[in-house]
Design a binder for these strands. Structure first.
Length: 446
DNA sequence: AGCAGGTTTGT
DNA sequence: CAAACCTGC
């Protein structure tokens, strides 16, 4: 039975063991990657860099038997399936609403050929953890309890090499175009072996201080696994088996993996929450979108707001495609509550810039910050960017690293100290804007 | 997954 | 007198 393994831009190498197991007895398997040309636009380049590394790694693993073709998946897959007379198409897909819609488009275009979903990159598939009456959880903590009771399979033991592959040469219609080489070195090497190696390093050397250091952008306290998870270079199940609950840092990390599953489940149950307020009460909140708002948005994007921790984060993002999670929360809060811009503006920018940008996590993280999501921060919780910076980056090492104007200043968070002349003045007064944000929230129900 | 402004506690 | 703890927004 000829089988086409199809990956879209969210390539999940971590699903290969499951795929291999599913097709172990079938020698007629072809792996295919569909590169959406829209990813080649500037906004998608960061992720394309990482993806390119993943693809090169995969091509090596598959002994060169990887088909790369340009186009949109819902056009190319049915075409290829017909060309190789595939009797089934195995899909390694993600759980974005776009993905779901494309799956449906592909399914209908395929006619009678079955579309087989071969697994997800989550510990527990979205939609599986629900309340007793079948309704989805809206709050993380009870979800977490039920999620742990649910359990999950151990990772597949067989590797990708256990599958045999057909020779793709001679398959008509495939574009032999090379994987774009952007010539930019990322901090993290891509690919499954690199992901595994990085993970082992984290578990052995840094997981015991994860709990205390994960909120500290000045320390290397995070696991930095997010891009590997996003691109499926590693399956969270592979990680979960290493998370001994008796070790506090590792237990805390499992909770974060549960959060990832939770937001995937939220997006599964409420697909419109990708771009619309999950809590529709917020539809009437007033946001600024005029020319002045757009000027402020530009200052935010380029790290020129005059608030050190925000600027450091935004500059780290531009330079590396990554931002520390605590700083993401601060920068998001600042855009929503100090600049009064629509959270979707920030979410779009993050999704475009972050190497690990994930629809479910990114969008719901923003909704949390904006107060309109599940489990959202109450409206009166307004981050003070200066105090947050001083609290989580006490020596200012993070700010000094990313904001050179403040490198040699005694008080880099500018709590009381003097502001160097070459560093921008604050674009807003936090006290005033905090009051303004509260006013706007309170007026929702008037 | 805050903040501010208070009160209590510990040295 | 500073750190730790409490409480309403």
């Amino acid at each position: 039975m000829p089988t086409l393994l199809w990956f879209r831009r969210d390539l999940r190498v971590g699903d290969l063991p499951a795929l291999s197991a599913a097709v172990a007895d079938d020698p007629e398997v072809l792996a295919c990657f569909v590169l959406d040309p829209r990813l080649e636009a500037s906004s998608g380049q960061r992720r394309l860099q990482f993806l390119g590394d993943c693809l090169r790694q995969l091509r090596d693993d598959l002994d060169g038997r990887l088909l790369i073709t340009r186009g949109t998946a819902h056009e190319r897959i049915p075409q290829l399936a017909r060309e190789i007379a595939a009797s089934a198409v195995h899909v390694s897909g993600d759980f974005t609403p776009f993905g779901q819609r494309r799956d449906q488009q592909v399914q209908s275009a395929l006619g009678g050929v079955p579309l087989v979903s071969t697994g997800s990159p989550y510990l527990v598939s979205p939609g599986r953890v629900v309340k007793d009456d079948g309704s989805p959880y809206r709050v993380f903590t009870p979800f977490f309890r039920r999620w742990r009771e649910h359990g999950w399979r151990r990772p597949a033991s067989s590797g990708p090499e256990s599958a045999r592959w057909i020779d793709p040469s001679g398959v008509p219609g495939s574009d032999p175009a090379e994987i774009p080489d952007l010539g930019v070195e990322l901090e993290l090497p891509a690919g499954e072996p690199a992901a595994l190696q990085h993970w082992r390093g984290f578990v052995e050397a840094r997981s015991d201080r994860y709990e205390s250091d994960r909120d500290r952008p000045d320390r290397d306290g995070g696991s930095r696994m997010s891009a590997y998870l996003k691109f499926g270079n590693i399956h969270p199940r592979t990680m979960a088996v290493d998370l001994d609950m008796r070790c506090p840092g590792r237990a805390a990390y499992l909770r974060q993996l549960a959060f990832r599953d939770f937001y995937a489940a939220v997006l599964h149950h409420w697909p419109r929450s990708a771009w619309a307020n999950w809590n529709r009460d917020f539809d009437s909140i007033q946001t600024d979108t005029d020319a002045e708002a757009q000027r402020r948005f530009e200052r935010w994007k380029t790290g020129q707001t005059g608030f050190p921790i925000v600027d450091a984060g935004m500059r780290e993002l531009s330079a590396t495609g990554f931002m520390h999670n605590r700083v993401r929360m601060i920068a998001a809060s600042f855009l929503v509550k100090d600049l009064h811009l629509p959270w979707q503006w920030g979410a779009r920018w993050f999704l475009d810039q972050l190497v690990d940008g994930d629809m479910a996590n990114n969008q719901h993280g923003w909704q949390w910050a904006a107060g309109c999501g599940t489990d959202a921060a109450p409206y009166f919780r307004v981050f003070n960017p200066t105090l947050q910076g001083a609290k989580f980056d006490p020596d200012g090492a993070y700010v000094r690293r990313w904001v050179p104007e403040l490198a040699d200043v005694e008080d880099p968070h500018l709590v009381k100290g003097a502001r160097p002349r070459d560093y921008p003045a604050p674009i807003v007064d936090h006290r005033d804007e905090r009051a303004e944000a509260l006013r706007r929230y309170l007026s929702i129900n008037e």
